[in-house]
Simulated scan of single mutants.
Amino acid sequence: MSERLGVTPAQTVGPFLHLGLRWPDGPYVVPEGTPGAFWIRGQVFDGAGAPVVDALVESWQADPDGRFDHPDDPRGARPPAVPGFRGFGRSETDAHGRYALLTVKPGPLPDPDGAIEAPHLTLSVFARGLLHRVVTRLYFPHDPANAGDPVLRSVDAERRGTLLAGPAPDGFRFDIRLQGENETVFFAV
């Protein structure tokens, strides 16, 4: 007769992030000095509105032509149009919950159903207390393609603003609220 073992409890994804996932040049999706580069800066907040000081924000995006140098791009992998562009960034939050990523604006993308997705970044947040990463999108303000984006249109109109970056002196600001009032929209991926 065999003995049935108990279920192993789930573990959260932090707080080891600052130790195990630190990447010194992680915030640089493009090298400093890249023409057209800008910063995306923001803060990560918990449900009580307090800054999350030990989170990690990762970005994934297309190049300015809307292409990926990745085998999953259905149009075929292609080297980026911008020298040094890697399409991926990683920024840990500081003592005030702030993160920063240096990037360029991605181009629009075809979606599997034939529609066009507006330029956006996919952002993943890892933090203590989360059993799994949470995934959201950052859209650019006043981009005419936003109106036709199938993902953005699928979000309740009153919550779409949580996916729009705001202008900032050196680029854009995008705060991420994990819970509570004005919680950022997250997607099941």
Rank of each mutant, 00 (worst) to 15 (best):
T122Y: 01
P79F: 10
F174D: 00
V52H: 06
W23Q: 10
T8I: 09
G49F: 15
A50F: 12
G171M: 10
P74S: 04
P141Y: 14
H70L: 06
P80N: 08
H132P: 00
A147Q: 15
D170F: 10
L164C: 02
V44N: 11
L56M: 15
D46K: 04
A37F: 03
P169R: 12
T8C: 04
P27N: 12
L163C: 01
G42C: 07
G26V: 09
A157G: 02
P144F: 10
D54Q: 11
V104R: 00
G6D: 14
D143L: 11
F140I: 03
L123Y: 06
I40F: 08
P112Y: 14
P119S: 09
T162V: 09
V53Y: 04
P9R: 11
R173T: 07
W39N: 02
P141M: 11
G107Q: 10
A157E: 15
G180C: 02
A10D: 07
G148P: 05
D111I: 05
H70Q: 10
G26I: 14
G76A: 15
D111F: 10
P83N: 10
P15V: 13
D73G: 04
P71V: 05
G129M: 03
A118P: 07
A115I: 05
H96S: 14
D54S: 14
D54I: 01
E117H: 06
S154W: 08
P9M: 08
H70T: 01
Q179V: 01
A127P: 01
E32Q: 13
L164F: 04
P9Q: 07
T12H: 07
V185Y: 03
G20K: 08
F16C: 08
P51W: 13
V155S: 07
G114A: 12
N182A: 14
P83L: 09
S2T: 14
H96T: 09
L178R: 03
V104A: 01
D170P: 04
D69N: 13
E3H: 13
R133S: 11
R67I: 04
P79I: 13
D54L: 01
A77F: 09
V185E: 02
R173E: 12
G49R: 10
S154P: 04
F38V: 03
E92Y: 00
L102V: 00
T93R: 04
V151S: 06
Y28D: 15
G14F: 07
D54F: 03
F16Q: 10
G87Y: 06
F16M: 05
D73E: 11
G114Y: 14
I40Q: 04
I40W: 05
P141L: 13
F172Q: 05
G6I: 05
P24Q: 11
E32W: 09
D72P: 00
L102R: 05
S91G: 06
R67Y: 02
D65F: 02
A95V: 12
